[in-house]
């Protein structure tokens, strides 16, 4: 087998194993609950009878291994069971049905932020690396260092205070529904997307700068310079083919960061996404929803890192052209 294919398959396999391990962690963390879930929900005064009925109703009286297999097989098919809240008698709310529209909203927000942030920060990062120690580099460096250190909600509320409350350019709350037209939707996510862009660009630009500086310090870049070939050719032909792996890593890392960042930003802007939903579910201890959200977040995270690794593998000349 070709080494690239072999390495990619190995990496895919490792990704699957990680996902599997994570799903076990997520599932079993619920089993850690002292006194059992029912006791916690129903209170200390609950009779054993009541607890038993409650557990039976939710299927919690079966062995953990059985419940895990059932949960994970259904989850792979997109079925995360029924929400605990709002489940009365025969009316059951499917978790997937609740999540689907919110997942779309979160994806919409994250994608908007990423489309702006990724090219912008790559451009700024590469510029800062090429013009190292210039005033441009220094300013960018101190601005991003400050931005990184700030909590997302601070940046978010400053933007709300200035752009929405004082200048009235945007709504302070980003309420959307399934019927919101596309452009209106875009306008309403502008502030949250801007918030996330600011946070991500700072991180990503710094990492890009570091990666490019590291790359340009390679002896083969000096060699290319001393061969007298043009600056653009040094960058395009000698630096770029070796830059994919570090850049992919930077992008994946920051998109993963973005996925987590949505939680706080959605709450600030009361944006109906999966992050806000998870926070609500945590407060009401709606376990199937919490589990589903955690699994989705973790899977995205793993997938992004997996993609970065695969890009690194398939652009590595030593693997592409084995001895």
């Amino acid at each position: 087998m070709h080494p690239v294919l072999k390495t990619v398959l190995q990496r895919l396999g490792l990704g699957m194993i990680t996902l599997f391990a994570v799903s076990i962690i997520i599932f079993s963390s619920l089993a850690l609950l002292p006194g059992g879930y029912a006791q916690n929900i129903l209170g200390q005064g609950a009779t054993p009878e009541l607890v038993k009925n409650f557990n039976h109703e939710l299927g919690l009286d079966r062995p953990a291994s059985v419940r895990y297999v059932e949960w994970i097989t259904n989850a792979v098919q997109g079925d995360f069971g029924n929400s605990y809240s709002g489940t009365t008698g025969t009316i059951k709310r499917s978790v997937s049905a609740i999540i689907a529209p919110r997942l779309y909203n979160t994806f919409f927000l994250a994608a908007t932020a990423a489309i702006v942030a990724v090219p912008l920060s790559l451009f700024l990062g590469i510029m800062a690396a090429l013009y190292r120690n210039s005033w441009f580099d220094r300013i960018i460096n101190s601005v991003t260092l400050t931005t990184i250190a700030m909590p997302e909600f601070f940046i978010a509320y400053i933007l709300v205070y200035v752009l929405a409350v004082k200048l009235r350019w945007f709504y302070p709350n980003s309420t959307v529904s399934a019927n919101t037209p596309f452009l209106e939707h875009l306008y309403r996510v502008a502030l949250p997307a801007l918030t996330m862009t600011l946070v991500i660009v700072a991180h990503m630009m710094r990492m890009t700068r570091a990666a490019i500086i590291n790359l340009l310090a390679a002896p083969y870049i000096e060699m290319a310079q001393l061969k007298g070939i043009s600056k653009s050719r040094v960058i395009l032909r000698h630096a770029l083919p070796n830059a994919w792996a570090p850049i992919a890593t930077v992008i994946a890392f920051n998109l993963a960061y973005l996925v987590v960042g949505v939680v706080v930003v959605e709450v600030v802007y009361v944006y109906p996404g999966i992050g806000q939903m998870m926070v609500d579910a945590v407060s009401s201890r709606d376990m199937p929803v919490v589990q589903a959200c955690a699994l989705i977040f973790a899977a995205t995270y793993i997938l992004l890192n997996l993609l970065a690794d695969i890009v690194s593998i398939i652009t590595n000349p030593r693997l592409l052209h084995p001895k």
């Binding site: 002896p219 060699m223 001393l226 070939i229 000698h238 070796n242 000349p317």
Partner: peptide, 19 residues
């Protein structure tokens, strides 16, 4: 550079572009 003055570095392995 390259055309009239050329350079040969110490570590050939590092000075050739792997790509």
């Amino acid at each position: 550079w390259g055309s009239r003055i050329a350079y040969v570095a110490q570590s050939a392995a590092a000075s050739f572009n792997p790509a």
